[in-house]
Every structure is written in structure tokens, then in C-alpha cells.
């Protein structure tokens, strides 16, 4: 009989619905809230950043790492070298939706019905001790 170890796959999860995106040239403000342990690293709880065009989540996080240093990056990204994926114990919400690695390289969606801004909550799930 054929190799039964690779049977037909179960249907995968549907990709997260994207929201409307903006023309590249229009400036976009991203509001970021830092919560919990990461706020101790950033020394501030909120930040508004303006981008020329809609950034990707990765672009936003790279900018935050430039601003706050390697300690921030170490808590957000799993590795220091590419491919840099998210720490599995970091939780990021974009406009109320929990996102994962799949959202890293897509443009951040606009928040529906609000002024042009995107809210990202960064909440590193503390572990250990």
C-alpha cells in the first residue's frame, strides 16, 4: 500500500482577513502601547510613530528596536539573526486581533472607523523565574 504516513491534509486555518490598505505615499501614524515587562525596557507606555506609507509589522518592530535597543529586540524576536520570527511568548494585537509570524511581512491594516492610526499592543508573556 502507499505510504499512509502522508495522508490528505486536514484543511488549514483561513488566513487572517486583511483590512483596507493605504496608498504608499500617505503618511500613517501608528500608536503603540507597551504593557507589562516590555514597558520596563522601553521606559514609556505609549508611542506614536509616523511612517511614510503603511509599514509592515516587521518594519514597525525593527524601528522600535532601533529606538529601544537590542534588549527590546531580544524580547520581541526569537533570534538575533534572520529569519527573525516572533518570540513565541510575545503577544501582539493589531486593532484588537492577536497576530503571529504570518502577520510580520504584511502591511499593517488600518483600524476601521477610526482616524488613520494602527494600534499595536505589545505584551511579552513573562515566563520563568
Amino acid at each position: 500500500m502507499g505510504n499512509a504516513h502522508n495522508a490528505a491534509r486536514a484543511p488549514g486555518t483561513a488566513p487572517a482577513a486583511g483590512g483596507p490598505t493605504r496608498p504608499a505615499a500617505e503618511p500613517v501614524t501608528v500608536r503603540v502601547s507597551f504593557m507589562g515587562l516590555i514597558a520596563y525596557v522601553t521606559k514609556e507606555k505609549e508611542l506614536a510613530l509616523e511612517f511614510a506609507g503603511t509599514p509592515t509589522l516587521r518594519g514597525l518592530l525593527d524601528e522600535l528596536e532601533r529606538r529601544y535597543g537590542a534588549d527590546f529586540g531580544a524580547r520581541v524576536f526569537r533570534t538575533s539573526t534572520p529569519p527573525r520570527l516572533l518570540q513565541m511568548c510575545t503577544r501582539i494585537f493589531v486593532n484588537g486581533d492577536l497576530v503571529d509570524d504570518k502577520a510580520l511581512d504584511a502591511p499593517l491594516p488600518a483600524a476601521p472607523g477610526t482616524p488613520p492610526a494602527i494600534l499595536v499592543y505589545l505584551l511579552p508573556a513573562a515566563t520563568g523565574g
Binding site: 531580544a74 526569537r78 533570534t79 538575533s80 518570540q87 513565541m88 511568548c89 510575545t90 503577544r91 508573556a125 515566563t127 520563568g128 523565574g129
Partner: peptide, 18 residues
Amino acid sequence: LPHVPYPPAEPRRPDSMG
């Protein structure tokens, strides 16, 4: 817990007690 066994995070200098 959010801290999953694999893939393990890159080891770094600790700032937790444990």
C-alpha cells in the same frame, strides 16, 4: 504557557531570578 519547548528561544544573559 507561552514559553513553548520548541523552537527554543536564543539563550541570552538572564535577568530573571531563575
